[in-house]
């Protein structure tokens, strides 16, 4: 993993988030949630800083980050695509959907397209099993997705969309 140096501003943002939660170890998940919301992802250096602020071991922080598929350690694309692989989605063809997205974007799960536009991840159950199989792009949910629809969904984001506001590290 390449080492990055956090900007002074990023350090301030993370410290501020921690202090909002009173630097309480028990609030780790909320802190991570907020940090990812503000920064887009949680690189090692951010986790170290959070561990330091909450006075806990960085191994524990990393343990939580890797336990929940929601947290990311690599920068996400402008439009992160998540394919639900929960039981309901899986039996209704999520695997073919995933395969089709990989084929069209030419990336593997956990990677981003070279232009930084899309990234691809799997997740477990978004609580919309009635709509299985489910794909999420950013915070928008697509239900009952068929492989033939993938091209159209991706095209929606190819141009003319506003980039979500995020702090650069």
């Amino acid at each position: 993993m390449p080492k990055i140096k956090l900007s002074q501003r990023t350090i301030e943002i993370v410290k501020e988030i921690c202090s909002t939660f009173e630097n309480n170890e028990g609030e780790l998940i909320n802190v991570l949630h907020e940090a990812q919301h503000k920064l887009g992802y949680l690189p090692a250096e951010v986790q170290e800083l959070i561990a330091n602020e909450l006075n806990m071991s960085v191994a524990k922080v990393y343990g939580v980050v890797t336990f929940y598929s929601f947290f990311n350690m690599i920068p996400q694309g402008e439009f992160p695509i998540s394919v639900c692989m929960g039981t309901a989605c899986y039996v209704r063809g999520a695997e073919q959907i995933l395969h089709e997205i990989k084929r069209q974007l030419n990336i593997e799960v956990g990677q981003s397209t070279p232009d930084g536009k899309f990234s691809l991840n799997c997740l477990r159950c978004v609580g919309a099993c009635g709509l299985a199989p489910v794909v999420m792009v950013g915070e928008k949910v697509y239900g009952r997705v068929a492989p033939q629809q993938i091209r159209k969904i991706i095209a929606e984001y190819q141009e003319g969309c506003v980039r979500p506001e995020r702090h650069e590290m």
Binding site: M56, S57, V58, A59, K60, Y62, G63, T66, F67
Partner: peptide
């Protein structure tokens, strides 16, 4: 604090 359970 060197070790922790990681991944799932």
């Amino acid at each position: 604090g060197a070790l922790s359970a990681i991944n799932r």
